[in-house]
Simulated scan of single mutants.
Amino acid sequence: MRFEEWDPIYREILEEFGFSRDEDEAAALLLKGLLSGRGGDLSLEDLDSMIRGRRVLVCGNGPGLALELGAILEEGPMARPGASRDEGLVVIAADGATTPLLAAGVVPDVIVTDLDGLLPDIVAASERGSAVVVHAHGDNVAALLEYVPRLRKVLATTQAAPLEGVYNFGGFTDGDRAVFLARHFGAEEIRLIGFDYDDPAVTPKKKKKLAWARRLVAMALEDQPSPPTSVR
C-alpha cells in the first residue's frame, strides 16, 4: 500500500484513538537511529526472497491459536528460518503469537511486533533466527530503547510517513500489519490463524483495535486470488 492511500486511514486512527502523529514520527526517527550503522539487519531483498511466491501462515494471538496451529502441524512441514523454498509454509507471527508458536516447537520466520508481547520470547526467537519487523509508534519508545539493541535481523516500520530505512507497508495492529507485509512481498497464498476479532475477554480499547484489524485485514486481502483458508 502506498502511503498516499494509507494516510487517510491513518488520520482516522489518530482521531479515534487520540494518538499523536508527532510522537509517531519521533519514534520512527528514534528507531532509525537505533539501527543506523548496525550490521546484519534485515533488508527488503531479504524479506522478498523469504516471502515472494510462497504460502504464508500469519498467526494472530487469539484464544483459538493453539487449536488451529495443532491442525496445521498435522498437515505437514512448516518452513524454518533459512529453509529452502519447498519446505512448507512461511510462518509470520503477530507479536504475542510468538509465545504459543515457540511452545509448539515452531520458530517463526518473521515476527511483526510493536514490542508489547512477551519480549523474552521475541528475543529468544530472534536469537534462533527469526527476522523481526519492529514497529515504532508514540507509545513504545521505552521498549524500542531497551529491546531493539537485543534483537537481530531487524527491519523498521512506522504507521506515519516512511523514512529512509523505516518503511510503511500499511496496517495498524500487529496482525493486520503482518498481512499487509505478506501482500507487499508477493506471497502466493496467505492463510490466517489465531485471528479472533470478537474476543470478549478484551478491554474496550482492544475491542476497537480488533475492529480496525478486521477492517484492515479485509482490505489487505480483498484482491487475493486464493482466499485464506482459516480466518475468524
Rank of each mutant, 00 (worst) to 15 (best):
I9P: 00
R11Q: 15
L14M: 12
F19I: 02
D24Q: 09
E25M: 13
A26P: 00
L31C: 04
S36T: 11
G40F: 05
D41E: 14
D41I: 04
M50G: 00
C59Q: 05
E68T: 08
E68H: 14
I72H: 03
E74K: 14
E75H: 00
P77L: 05
A83S: 15
S84W: 04
A94S: 13
A97E: 06
G105R: 06
V106T: 06
D109F: 00
D114F: 01
L115Q: 05
L118F: 14
P120D: 09
E127V: 02
V134W: 00
A136W: 05
N140Q: 11
V141K: 14
A142M: 12
Y147E: 02
L151E: 01
R152F: 01
K153I: 01
A156H: 06
T157P: 01
T157Q: 06
A161W: 01
P162H: 10
E164K: 13
Y167F: 15
G175N: 08
A182N: 08
H184W: 13
L192W: 03
D199G: 07
P200S: 11
T203H: 05
T203L: 11
K206H: 08
R215E: 12
A218W: 07
L221C: 08
E222A: 02
E222D: 13
Q224M: 14
Q224H: 11
P225F: 07
S226V: 14
